[in-house]
Design a protein around this nucleic acid. Structure first.
Length: 636
RNA sequence: GCCCACGUAGCUCAGUAGGUAGAGCACUUCCUUGGUAAGGAAGAGGUUCACCGGUUCGAUCCCGGUCGUGGGCUCCA
């Protein structure tokens, strides 16, 4: 029997004998760089190059230079790592080892944790395995055979995995003496793994559940060539330079000190200025969009939190205090006051939608291990709003918020991703309400033509949400904006409005933040700009510096004029050489240096040196101001 | 909260096979008045090496605990 196979990017179909492998076909294919081909795709499914073909169809080769190929390479590297670990440390059990965004990992159950020295040994052993070019051999076993096979080897995690599968047969891959349960495909042999590095060890719970035993996870990364690996490692080093914790200290923005407590931020003058600028921006943008500013207290009676469901569902994250024998909860969210404002008088359908906005400072008791610079703290301020509207208005309101987020992110130049999170296990409300709310969010996303992912079971306890995520310098995603639909709290607090037909009805509530937590947003923003804030956000926009003390009074005069014009300005009149002052201002990433010497003093000008540009332009103060104001207004 | 690593001057880091600690930058003073990324000299700065215990004649160094930080896991704005 012959097969008719059409190869991607080649004309016509070719006839091959039954059982031919992609590797055979590749041999006399005109494709260049055969050594770059790691696997194939046959009739839509990824297969090994050594897989015998048993039907006619379409064949495509997967080069290692594609994301799919790279994933296969990295997944194969994880198998090599597992082999090395088992050879070096008998008794270590294997669990799972997938490719991930920047590399791969493998989780092991080891009687003792791996040390950095172990990683070196493992890496060396991996080099040997790579050098011996062991073939990856695919085998098929029945479910029971496979269970027996791994039970014999005392690989209980593998047994558990197979038992959870509902398939009659499973595939296994072996290289050398090492065999692992795996769907595949893999590169043809271990020699394909040319450039790899083990990067870190970490603990990880079996199946990601904290009730399960903790395993030892080894992370690594692999690339098609050494050059790319090197570049990747250099990029990581570069990224570390823009870490907001490092820049926060260098630019004197904020500190987090032991004496104060973990996760509690102290804002220094320049950081506080940044916050002021962002917060002022927010007020203006919210007022433009029909929000009203409100403010609520930080502590509210415990009964109120019981009524809202926070006490039952969120207690572990809350701080409590007691005043005159009355228990209070310190707010972890701002919604309660906003609901009580709604409830403070009778509402008509004519009043809706109501959009209450608060820069609300909340406290959450985050577990100690999760705190992270400004990105995960215990006290933070949200640009929070609660919209109360009729069910009919819900869709427009959600669309309005998505547009708002889009506008703001465009100003800062952020790319972002959106996720729709559905009902979690621990939650309140009826199934119908959850469905209505989830549909409302999804419909808005569809109307926006947005790309989004669905995050099953990741919603808030009171409702589903759309999360908008930004990435930090190290490519980690952080949630900033979120839009949450809530039918439950209006119910619990018996919020009503009188509709046009005179009937009292229940409004819908939307909880939403645009930047999210100001702390987190600023952390991501510092990394996004690498500390070089655009003019409108720079805490210090310009520095006046003199060449010698002859220009002291002229420099002060210029500074005075500019400050009156609203320029955030510092003076550097120290007895230092101009090169030294420039160096400092460059390191502080100040947008404009205004240098005055005898020439400038005589002509009543300033020598303007712009950040990122080594040349200077001599301008009159008026000329500089006009340029300055134009740039600041552009927010560029 | 869990796993691993780490915790020396404001910052970045060295150091001691266990014998009461060092550099650079920053800071202060003096000299220098210099035109676009570090001018020179002197000085001060650690209650003695996160904290608390233990071993020891003696601990910054070894052991245990606590707290904090970092990388992950879980959780989350």
């Amino acid at each position: 029997m012959n097969l008719s196979i059409q190869i991607e990017n080649q004309d016509g179909e070719k006839i091959y004998p039954f059982g031919i492998t992609p590797a055979d076909i590749l041999k006399d294919s005109p494709i260049e760089n055969h050594r770059d081909i790691v696997a194939a795709r046959f009739n839509g499914a990824a297969v090994d190059l050594s897989a015998p073909l048993t039907e006619s169809g379409r064949l495509a080769f997967i080069p290692v230079t594609t994301s799919e190929g790279l994933e296969i390479l990295r997944h194969s590297a994880s198998h090599v790592m597992a082999q090395a670990v088992q050879e070096l440390f008998p008794g270590v059990k294997i669990t799972i080892g997938p490719a991930i965004e920047d590399g791969f990992y493998y989780d092991f159950d080891s009687p003792r944790p791996f040390t950095p020295e172990d990683l070196e040994k493992i890496e060396t052993r991996m080099q040997e395995i790579v050098k011996s070019k062991l073939d990856f051999r695919r085998m098929i076993m029945s479910r029971n055979e496979a269970i027996d096979f791994f039970r014999d080897k005392d690989e209980s995690y593998k047994v558990e995995l197979i038992e959870a599968l509902d398939a009659d047969e499973v595939s296994l891959y072996a290289q050398g003496e090492f065999t692992d349960l795996c769907r595949g495909p893999h590169v043809p042999n271990t020699g394909f793994i040319k450039a790899f590095k083990l990067t870190k060890v970490a603990g990880a719970y079996w199946r990601g559940d904290e009730r399960n035993p903790m395993l030892q996870r080894i992370y690594g990364t692999a690339f098609p060539a050494q050059k790319e690996l090197k570049r990747h490692l250099e990029l990581i080093e570069e990224a570390k330079k823009r870490d907001h914790r490092k820049l926060g200290r260098e630019l004197d923005l904020f500190s987090i000190q032991d004496e104060v407590g973990p996760g509690l931020v102290i804002w220094h003058p320049k950081g506080a200025m940044l916050r002021y600028l962002i917060e002022e921006f927010e007020r203006v943008e919210h007022l433009k969009r029909g929000y009203q500013m409100v403010m609520g207290p930080t502590i509210l009676k415990k009964e109120l939190w019981e009524r809202s469901g926070h006490f039952d569902n969120y207690r572990d994250h809350m701080y409590f205090t007691s005043v005159d024998n009355v228990d209070y909860g310190i707010k972890p969210m701002n919604c309660l006051s906003h609901m009580l404002i709604y409830k403070s008088k009778i509402r008509s359908y004519r009043d809706l939608p109501l959009r209450f906005f608060e820069l609300g400072t909340v406290h959450r008791h985050e577990k100690s291990g999760v705190l992270h610079g400004l990105l995960r703290v215990r006290q933070f301020t949200q640009d929070d709003a609660h919209i109360l509207c009729t069910p009919d208005q819900l869709n427009d309101e959600i669309n309005g918020i998505i547009n708002f987020v889009g506008d703001v992110m465009a100003i800062f130049g952020f790319e972002y991703t959106m996720e729709l999170s559905t009902r979690p296990e621990k939650s309140i409300g009826t199934d119908e309400d959850w469905e209505r709310a989830t549909n409302a969010l999804q419909r808005a996303l569809e109307q926006q033509g947005a790309d989004y992912e669905i995050n099953e079971g990741d919603g808030a306890f009171y409702g589903p949400k759309i999360d908008i995520k930004l990435k930090d310098a190290l490519n980690r995603s952080w949630q900033c904006a979120t839009i949450q639909c809530d039918f439950t709290l209006p119910e619990r607090f018996d919020l009503t409005y009188t509709d046009s037909d005179g009937v009292r009805k229940r409004p819908v509530m939307i909880h939403r933040v645009v930047l999210g937590a100001i702390e987190r947003f600023l952390g991501v923003l510092v990394e996004h700009y690498a500390g070089a804030f655009p003019l409108w956000l720079s805490p210090v926009q310009a520095i006046v510096m003199n060449i010698t003390d002859r220009q002291d009074s002229y420099a002060r005069e210029i500074a005075e004029i500019l400050r009156k014009e609203g320029v955030r300005l510092e003076e550097d009149l120290r007895n230092e050489k101009i090169g030294f002052k420039i160096r400092e201002a460059v390191n502080q990433k100040v947008p404009y240096m205004l240098i005055v010497g005898d020439d400038e003093m005589t002509n009543r000008t300033v020598a303007v040196r712009k950040r990122g540009d080594r040349s200077t332009t001599v301008l009159s103060v008026e000329e500089f101001l006009s340029l300055f104001h134009k740039e600041a207004a552009n927010r560029s």
